[in-house]
Amino acid sequence: MIQSFRTIGKHGYAVEYSPYLPQRLACATSQHYGLAGSGTLFILDSTPGGLLLVQAYDWNDGLFDVTWAENNENLLITGAGDGSLLLFDVAQSKGPLKAWKEHTKEVNSVDWSQTRDEHLVLSASWDKLIKMWDIGRSQSLCTFVGHEYIVYSVVWSPHIPGCFASASGDHTLRIWDARQPQFAQTVIPAHNAEVLTCDWCRYDKNLLFSGGVDNLIRVWDLRNTKQCVIELSGHQYAVRRIRAYPFDGHILGSCSYDFTVRLWDIRQPHHLDCIQHHKEFVYGLDFNVHKPGLVTDCGWDELVQEYSPQCLLPR
């Protein structure tokens, strides 16, 4: 069964389930395919009657990513096309609570740390920079320099405090230590094309997934990064986002410019399932951390879809 919500006039860029409330999710959207116009953050609840709107927050530029707080069920941060990070409180109808603007170009990735007591936030931008933030401060804590092109994705390790990965148009994955912003700990020439996305395995601290404009998904073991340990092919166009499945370390999901979502078991060469219910680029993807098998995605066709693929259901 698919539940749908239409983000009328706005194109979906990112979607994420709440780590606190199993029914709640957020979707970051942009007008005019992110090239011009405004953005809206939609807060939705999944109910037996469908996906229902809880709150909608407008901003004067496109919104490209969203991350929920790990220490407050009502807080979340989005990255905006004007270089801003925006903090929203779902308990309030007005927003944002705060706006930080240090990036000089679009912020297309944000992530809230799951392992540190400080609950730090990362942002990555078209200005080639990564910044680290504490929402209690008025400015960023530090800036990570090294990527030579757009940084498309930045993700905290769910296992190692202070460790995060980034993916860039300079064809590399980089592994960073938050205590040493001067340089990356590891630089991986990951794809022979722009790298658009990365994510960590939830069950093995050494495994990292990447996806690129070469249509490929690669699995990396940080103990030896000279070559990938697994390569998955099947997407017809660029892999826009990868998400590791929270209930099985071998399963991951991906979405693509080929209008599909695919589910994979990294022990097998072919995808487990190919879901084709969008008519435009699929940009956002997430798994519900409370309910095994529940997936949500969003695309440029103005649809948020929630569903349970057969291959993820208990057997």
Results as ranks from 00 to 15, higher is better:
residue 79 G to F: 03
residue 79 G to H: 01
residue 81 G to L: 02
residue 83 G to W: 01
residue 84 S to M: 02
residue 85 L to R: 00
residue 87 L to E: 10
residue 87 L to A: 11
residue 89 D to M: 01
residue 90 V to H: 10
residue 90 V to C: 13
residue 91 A to D: 10
residue 91 A to P: 01
residue 92 Q to S: 08
residue 93 S to M: 06
residue 94 K to I: 15
residue 95 G to T: 00
residue 98 K to Y: 12
residue 98 K to R: 07
residue 100 W to V: 05
residue 101 K to T: 08
residue 102 E to C: 07
residue 103 H to D: 12
residue 103 H to C: 13
residue 105 K to F: 05
residue 105 K to L: 15
residue 106 E to Y: 08
residue 108 N to P: 14
residue 109 S to P: 00
residue 111 D to R: 00
residue 112 W to P: 02
residue 112 W to E: 05
residue 113 S to C: 10
residue 113 S to W: 02
residue 114 Q to V: 14
residue 115 T to S: 14
residue 118 E to Q: 11
residue 118 E to T: 13
residue 120 L to C: 11
residue 121 V to F: 08
residue 122 L to I: 11
residue 122 L to Y: 03
residue 122 L to F: 11
residue 125 S to D: 13
residue 125 S to M: 06
residue 127 D to M: 03
residue 129 L to P: 05
residue 129 L to W: 12
residue 132 M to I: 14
residue 133 W to I: 15
residue 134 D to G: 04
residue 134 D to I: 02
residue 138 S to Y: 10
residue 139 Q to K: 13
residue 140 S to T: 13
residue 141 L to V: 13
residue 142 C to F: 11
residue 142 C to H: 08
residue 147 H to F: 12
residue 148 E to P: 01
residue 150 I to W: 08
residue 151 V to M: 09
residue 152 Y to T: 07
residue 154 V to M: 09
residue 154 V to R: 00
residue 154 V to Y: 07
residue 155 V to Y: 13
residue 156 W to L: 05
residue 160 I to T: 14
residue 161 P to T: 07
residue 162 G to C: 09
residue 163 C to Q: 13
residue 166 S to W: 03
residue 167 A to S: 06
residue 167 A to K: 00
residue 167 A to R: 00
residue 167 A to T: 03
residue 168 S to E: 04
residue 170 D to W: 01
residue 170 D to S: 03
residue 171 H to I: 12
